[in-house]
Amino acid sequence: MFEAKLNEASVFKKIVESVKDGFKNCNFDCSEEGISMESMDDAHIALVSMKLGVEAFSSYRCDRSISLGLNIESLLKVLRTANNNDVLTMRAEDDGDLLTLVFEDSSNPDRISEYNLKLLNIDQEHMSIPEQEYTATVTLPSSEYQRIIRDLTQLGDSITIDAAKDGVRFTAEGDIGSGSVSLKANTNVGEDEKSIDIAVEEPVALGFNSKYLTQTCKAAPLAPRVSLNMCKRIPIFISYKLQAGHFSFFLAPQISE
């Protein structure tokens, strides 16, 4: 028996909204440590990795580790029926083929809605993610990251992130012209959430497909800060720290022919 209760359905809804564009079917692996999910897009360009620890839930029970194979679009149909502050209970039997989602309206205790989603058998590649030292780490407000990617995507299909000791620069170039946004490292005293933190051992510049970068900034509502970890010639590791877990992307860089 698996049963997990989230005080705010919106947490799970935001997670699923963040993966809807690149990932069709995903396994949500439930264990006594919490729920985790790892999925690679069909083109093998981006990998999403998510963990919601037991502390994220107001109650949590998982007698036996199970994988809940879910179609993201179907799951979203159900999650979108909920109010953001509804209490969400997810339940599955050990050998069942359904995930039950129950929403309780915190402002109207007389209303309870219940949905059953058919589980899928997803043949998924599990990737081992190596421990990696990154030579450049930029941590910035996730809303700022989202804005930069949104603005520059209009200029070109490819965005370069250039991290140096004194700042980070995002550049796009396309048919209509080019654009760039530079951020200098700063620390807003008393406003840690707004600071731009830059730790660069070695300057690094990597180019990415802007369509994929756009996907990685959809998670901005999940956390106030995002960190971009880079090293030459390997995937960028983009991570949002959640209250009890993380939501991260690995995205392969572009290489020149």
Partner: peptide
């Protein structure tokens, strides 16, 4: 034009 890499090159399948 730049070519996007394949993540499979970086992560090993398990």
């Amino acid at each position: 034009t730049p070519i996007q890499n394949d993540l499979g090159e970086f992560f090993t399948m398990v």
